[in-house]
Amino acid sequence: MVYLQGGPGFGSPVPQDFALTNTVLDRGYQMLYLDSRGTGMSSPVTASTLAMLGDEYRQADYLKLFRADSIVKDLEAVRKTLTADFPSHLKRWSIVGHDFGGFCVLTYLSFYPEGLLEAFTLGGLPPISRTPDQVYAATYKKVMDRNRVYYMKYPEDIEAIQNLCFHIKSKSGLPLPSGGVLTVRGLLTLGRHFGIYGGLDFVHDLILRAKSDLARFQFITRPTLTALERAVSIDDNVIYAILQEATYCQRVASNWSADRVGCSLKEYQWLKGSPKSASVIREGPLFFSGEMIYPFLFETFPELEKLAIVADLIAKFPDWPNLYNEWQLAQNTVALYAATYVDDMYVDYELAQGTVKLVNNCRQLITNTLFPNALYSQPGEVLKLLFELRDDSID
């Protein structure tokens, strides 16, 4: 069995520290973890490694080769190499994809189904026939729902966040320990954590620490700034920053879709620029964004700043090849077992159901009691249910 990590742009976990490993080994599988191209130990992509290629146009062309279609080509090459001497009935393998890894699973099923014995996804059924704008229109709704839950749980944070934003605005941004600047808009990207188990509490803890600092010292201390930086910075994951919207592109440019869609919503007018006055900050609860990438991130974080032109070239590229073959998926014969989370903030549930209708031989585990990071936060429960679905013991 091969594990495909979420992302895009994240390497595989350390096998011995990952709950999936023992579960799979106990079921008689051999387990293979691969760092997909550009991640982990697979020639990691950074501003420095990209600069070795030449100008921004060469760098952008290189990054176009890091989507799911290229990843599954790599997987097929590895499979064929590893099984070259195997008898024909043992040449196929099983795959399991988490989040973006599930997107790769559907790409694999589209173009190389002959290499697969069975497939599993955990929160990773991609919106196959949707444009980036349609995807973000749906996910913003879920993000706003999570904001309302957050402020219902922590109503005192309405004022605390307003005060913190006012402080950041008054200082024209806060210098971060590793470089870059924490702006009001940067702070409000903390909402990307709202979709995981414990995410609301994680953000609240950061706000509480900042609130305490301001009350005692009238500034934010270095330990708190470090914690905030770790929570908002994506400097170590440039593939995630540059190619996230491209994961939804087929024959269309994203044109900074999340930014455009967000700017059309009254809750996200802060995307248009830093608040002009304190009264704007005080108008009501400030809504956090979710798993969205914005152009301003390439102005405030040092690693991303070096890649701003590259990111813009990628955002405006219109000729992305198809990632899925709907005709092939409609006649799919490889068993697909999908764990689908009703309250998924990252992969919209309704859009995922649209995909299920397009894929033959797909069985779902649908739950509203687990979050998208269940493989990490509650692995025993989600894996038990997923394998029961495979073993046909749920009914």
Rank of each mutant, 00 (worst) to 15 (best):
C165V: 15
E156M: 12
G262N: 05
Q250L: 04
Y294F: 15
L365E: 14
F387Q: 01
R148M: 11
S212H: 15
V203M: 09
G284D: 13
R209V: 01
I71Y: 00
F287T: 01
Y136E: 14
R209Q: 15
D157I: 03
S212L: 12
K306D: 04
S94F: 01
V238C: 09
K169G: 04
I95F: 09
E388Y: 07
L383V: 08
R58T: 09
T340S: 14
I161A: 03
D259I: 02
G115V: 04
T221Y: 00
Y112R: 03
R146T: 02
A338M: 06
R216L: 12
F194C: 08
E56M: 05
T333E: 14
L75M: 13
A68S: 15
S88C: 04
E381W: 04
F298T: 10
V45L: 06
L106M: 10
Y346S: 04
S88I: 15
L225R: 11
V280F: 05
P132M: 13
L125I: 14
I242V: 12
F166E: 06
T121P: 08
F219Q: 09
Q331K: 10
I168Q: 10
A246Q: 15
R260W: 05
F219H: 11
F296Q: 11
A215R: 13
T340A: 13
L125F: 07
N322P: 04
M31Y: 12
L4C: 05
L286A: 02
G124S: 02
S277K: 06
Y349S: 06
L313D: 00
Y346P: 00
K153E: 00
F120A: 07
L176A: 02
Q16E: 13
A215E: 12
V149A: 13
F217W: 08
L271E: 09
V359L: 03
A84F: 05
Y136T: 07
G199V: 02
Q353K: 15
N361F: 01
L182C: 10
L386Q: 05
K91N: 11
G198M: 10
